[in-house]
Design a protein around this nucleic acid. Sequence first.
DNA 1: CGACACATGTAACACGTTACATGATTTG
DNA 2: CAAATCATGTAACGTGTTACATGTGTCG
Lengths: 188, 188
Amino acid sequence: MSIRHGLLALLERGSRYGYQLRAEFEESTGGTWPLNVGQVYTTLGRLERDGLVRGMPESDGGQRPYEITDAGRAELALWFATPLSQADRPRDELAIKLALAITTPGVDVRAVVQTQRSATMRSLQEFTKLKQAGGELPWLLVLEAMIFQCEAESRWLDHCESALVRHRPTVTPVTQHIDERVTADERA
Amino acid sequence: MSIRHGLLALLERGSRYGYQLRAEFEESTGGTWPLNVGQVYTTLGRLERDGLVRGMPESDGGQRPYEITDAGRAELALWFATPLSQADRPRDELAIKLALAITTPGVDVRAVVQTQRSATMRSLQEFTKLKQAGGELPWLLVLEAMIFQCEAESRWLDHCESALVRHRPTVTPVTQHIDERVTADERA
DNA sequence: CGACACATGTAACACGTTACATGATTTG
DNA sequence: CAAATCATGTAACGTGTTACATGTGTCG
């Protein structure tokens, strides 16, 4: 639903055509989430089908601008007025992954956690660097949203690791045979 | 991709049938993300089509168990070994919403922020209550992931609000006419 | 001219989601 | 018996995503 409403919001500023919409959408979010042009057109088609936008006749340079309708404006207002509930959000794949890793035989959960943390920290560094480069307020806020998320994820991964250590003791390479005895016990 | 791999992980524990898979999936995540049974079957169909699981003949009580194949095991191992990159994640709808709210005429951004924060805090309280009730380790970690996320979101919303105040001064009901002058200036 | 950016669009597919149809089994 | 739960499955739709086809304009 984010692209749908995103395009609607851009059209609220005034009439735009597909290519413009893609450029402005990517600009708002600083190119963090690249948007395939094709998707703009398919989404515009669906928005028109639903009566939220109106496609104008093709103008001079082969450009076909769209404008938002009253229904579209209402839908947009509703979007802004309604908070995102937990149910609206996609499942947290990382949480699912770790939760299942714990109960899946033959998975080194600590390795999963550590690999993820490396990746998360790399992202965090990239974002921090981008932040130094500066930019418009919207793009800056998006960046900071992702920075906050990375930090939360990193803290959560730390938390998971220590919870795991508490739950099933750490294994060093030397005591590999002990590891196998322990997991065998747990299966019973 | 999370359900696909989730089912694969559950099948790694042993042969299961559809209804069981749904129950175990919801149990792992504590019912936070309810999973429609129908989706289990469609997903199992796709997994079988891709050779990652094998559907067994229908047994006694009308149950049709599935088992994971070697290809499925490889896919699962890959899933666990590969960290989630930023590109894999869905667009952050809230971030997009706020970024666009800022540049959309006629939107009270502060109201959007405050409405969202109320909702986020409500979620946070629910999760905290659930945490007190306790549960298995996987479910506990999932809960804490969501708690951490809510906290990050709440902090980010605070940050947005203060960034907005810095950028365009707060308006009180009494000085409504001043607000209109200001926004008119900004449009120019 | 040839390459590249601009611009529109379609086809095909993946995944998630809901609603529905259908039966077997259990239980009050 | 009737209602609820267990269990399987299909049909239909929505969004997101990619790949492709097509044409125009511009610039070295």
